[in-house]
Lab assay of single mutants.
Amino acid sequence: MAAGGDHGSPDSYRSPLASRYASPEMCFVFSDRYKFRTWRQLWLWLAEAEQTLGLPITDEQIQEMKSNLENIDFKMAAEEEKRLRHDVMAHVHTFGHCCPKAAGIIHLGATSCYVGDNTDLIILRNALDLLLPKLARVISRLADFAKERASLPTLGFTHFQPAQLTTVGKRCCLWIQDLCMDLQNLKRVRDDLRFRGVKGTTGTQASFLQLFEGDDHKVEQLDKMVTEKAGFKRAFIITGQTYTRKVDIEVLSVLASLGASVHKICTDIRLLANLKEMEEPFEKQQIGSSAMPYKRNPMRSERCCSLARHLMTLVMDPLQTASVQWFERTLDDSANRRICLAEAFLTADTILNTLQNISEGLVVYPKVIERRIRQELPFMATENIIMAMVKAGGSRQDCHEKIRVLSQQAASVVKQEGGDNDLIERIQVDAYFSPIHSQLDHLLDPSSFTGRASQQVQRFLEEEVYPLLKPYESVMKVKAELCL
């Protein structure tokens, strides 16, 4: 049975990233139509530049190519590739079939990587351009969430054990800070992308030097003109047959890092959902379990974690691919890159769409948070109580021993009897502590235990987050809708 299948058929496997999760716009960027249309555009740009620099290419040939950029006979191309065992030459023939007058000058002087690699770089750039505003929107939604809850005390956790208090907004800023680093890295790697350009079979530009009869300047002009037509500021000066596969490492490393950030955020949300302090959106008709109707599973956060793990592992592909590119190139890269580049971007696209949807509907339960604080705060307040007693004339050592005994009794009630923490009640009825009984409410005010959390939130948002989001103001209103 021949390899390949009808990918629109229910009898043929289709990647869930495309069929179930990723956005239509990201799927289109990695589609065959987008790819092969870009090949034709690159052939047109090459012909236009070659004509401008004096090669015998007519206006009629150029116009014929322009008129057929979208006229792609995919069936013919597939048949040609089956016959020739070469995808680029299959599309040269297919393009030439609908451009008979231009057929002889299509791909003039070029090698397969002229269309293959340059198209990949265009796709990487455009895919990054799709991700950047999506990530900015996630940051914006979380920034709104953090600002609104900047002063809401909550129990902090280290080692997932109760620690000092923080605020809900401050905790959210930990998430935002990681995503801001990801946004900066995505922008950097996007701006650092260079075009492969017009380089020939081993990167020496020998074929173009021959076409222009040894004119170095025209060869350099050709490279520059096509690079500018493709919208790049610069091209690699040095290439082998391909652009260095280190570029793929750079791009997928940034995406993998984004995956790590999203995994951490969504894990926190899942843990908070278990504590009943916070939940992701839950639709009115949504079913959490087929057997347990009360369940409210954090399905979206779980999906993000599941896909983020996949995204983090994909960076190993370009690392290994770059390491086995012998001399000017081997074909070890080809099949692998067809999979890992598309999957990385479709996965990143999915987790950003999902995280935006989550961040637009996060639900906080202040009463649950308050109750958990009441359970733990008495123990945390013991040092403040000791200091207040010393100020009232008591002995630190005597007070410490009193607190120690009462704390152990209260802990026994919590752990052995399943009761509430009654340390404060014990202190309130103990005559030894009568000098500070009137101060206990103040000493137990949760806001006095959150330090500068709310001020940190305000400063972080104003100095770091809002300036970073400013270039994306025009796209901030787009909502994230999930079908599944």
Rank of each mutant, 00 (worst) to 15 (best):
L272K: 05
P318V: 06
I106H: 00
E463G: 11
M89R: 00
L131P: 04
Q409Y: 05
H93P: 00
P378F: 03
I249W: 11
Q241A: 02
R396Q: 06
K147F: 09
A344C: 03
K276S: 05
L209P: 04
F36H: 15
I369E: 06
P298I: 07
V324Q: 06
S447F: 09
A344T: 05
V363I: 13
A230T: 04
S412T: 14
A18C: 12
L69F: 11
K402S: 03
H442G: 11
P435Q: 10
G156W: 01
A18L: 14
R296C: 08
L352G: 04
L341I: 13
A127K: 07
R396H: 03
V405M: 15
D11S: 09
E277H: 06
F145K: 04
S151N: 13
P56S: 11
L352N: 01
M292W: 03
I386C: 15
F145C: 08
L444K: 07
Y34H: 10
Q409L: 12
R141G: 14
Q458M: 11
L461P: 02
G288L: 02
A143V: 08
S438G: 08
I369R: 05
A342M: 05
E213D: 04
P56V: 12
D333P: 04
F433D: 02
H107D: 00
I249C: 11
A47Y: 02
N421D: 03
S407M: 01
T38Y: 10
Q286F: 06
L42T: 09
T154C: 08
V198P: 06
A235N: 12
Y432S: 10
S447V: 11
M26S: 02
Q210D: 10
K391Y: 10
C340Q: 04
L69H: 08
K199V: 04
L444M: 12
S12C: 14
A273M: 13
T242Q: 03
C483H: 10
D192M: 08
E48A: 05
Y294Q: 03
D182F: 02
I176H: 03
Q177R: 02
I265Y: 14
E425R: 12
V390D: 03
T38K: 11
C98A: 10
G419D: 08
V247T: 11
G361D: 15
I237V: 10
S290V: 02
I386S: 03
V364Q: 04
D441H: 10
C180K: 06
D73T: 12
D32I: 11
R396L: 06
D420P: 07
Q320C: 11
S12F: 12
M380S: 03
L444D: 04
S323G: 10
G418A: 03
S253K: 02
V414S: 04
L362E: 06
P10R: 14
I386V: 13
I176M: 14
